[in-house]
């Protein structure tokens, strides 16, 4: 059993997004975080001070740990932002802003 089967989901056709240069399948309606989890990715940010990997923590937009760069816009909460066809998602290094 997986969660899609459990809820008898019949999602629309999958599309692809790009994550750090590779193509990742995405189901309509899922957030960026859900798409990355499904693809086995658990981290998409490295911290400013220690360069440590981070991903989802609170899952509801409170902790800002899951910040990610989507279509060149840094600081997006992956747990809130829905994935859209063609999205270019990049691991956010540090502040996510270019020097």
């Amino acid at each position: 059993m997986n969660p899609l089967e459990l809820a008898r989901a019949r999602p629309g056709p999958a599309f692809t997004v790009e994550f750090d240069g590779r193509r990742v399948p995405a189901l309509p309606g899922r957030t960026v975080a859900a798409v990355l989890w499904e693809a086995g990715v658990t981290s998409w940010r490295s911290t400013r001070r220690g360069g440590r990997p981070r991903g989802v923590f609170c899952g509801i937009g409170v902790c800002f740990d899951c910040l990610v760069t989507v279509n060149d816009r840094p600081g997006q909460r992956a747990c809130l932002v829905p994935a859209r066809p063609g999205d270019v998602i990049r691991t956010q290094e540090g502040t996510g802003h270019a020097d």
Binding site: T31, A34, W37, T42, F57, C58, G59, C79
Partner: peptide, 17 residues
């Protein structure tokens, strides 16, 4: 992750970590 976070991802995204 927070327990509620795992639950939120599961309920809305039908996905597990």
């Amino acid at each position: 992750v927070t327990a509620g976070g795992a639950q939120a991802m599961l309920k809305a995204g039908l996905v597990v970590p």
